[in-house]
Amino acid sequence: MILQTQGLSRRFGGLKAVDDVSFAVAEHTVQSIIGPNGAGKTTFFNLVTGALSPDAGRILFRGRDVTGFGPDRLAEMGLVRTFQRTSIFRDFTVAENVSLAIRSRERRNQSLFLSRADEERIDTEACAIVAEVGLAGSERTIANNLSHGAQRALDVAIGLAGHPRLILMDEPLAGMSQGDRASIATLIVRLREEMGLTVVLVEHDIGMVMRLSDRITVFHHGRVIAAGPPAEIREDAAVRSAYLRGSFAA
């Protein structure tokens, strides 16, 4: 198990946003988290990525207790995330966005000197990553001028530059056009198949989730009400009544 949580809880005032959640992800799988709005998915994400600290429970990443670690330390260990609202460095070029993340991985962000050779090596690697997410040709474009789908892909590329083991994606398909959705979905498959990553998704597009995922976890009122492979989840009565209500046919 690359990522595990044990009895993770977080409340906001009287609301138990995440309530005693135990969750595990096996390496090289795509695992999705679904649930109605307000089910605690985003809070859970924020807890796991270190943006929030839990009131109770533990988080284990690659066998190590990382409870209370900040996002920068987790990123160094190989846990990265993408954002529901695409989060990139808008006034940098595409390649610079990625170079920045590479330098960060190499802990050169506070260095006062970078040799020309290193500069070129990093730029080459950045361009390779940019190509991997399908943005070849836009390396020197200012990120803000990219289309929405391309910006989302860049968001993923920034994550990949950190040499992650696990990538958490917060609603990667939200607000995307039909064409962009297909290319992002292809990218997710490739992340696992070709780059050997583990992917955790929060996503509302049930059809896409059923197709992409090896395993699905269903949240409701801050708790896990079901977990299993897509076929099993589809048949689960509790899930149907809480969330799906038989509304999908996929």
């Binding site: 006034d91 330098r103 960060s104 006062l112 970078l114």
Partner: peptide, 24 residues
Amino acid sequence: TPLGQAWLAVKSNPERSLFVGIPV
């Protein structure tokens, strides 16, 4: 320098910087 570029990254998008592993 990398430091200067990381500064601009922090200015441009502090949240993303943190998740890239920059000690903001």
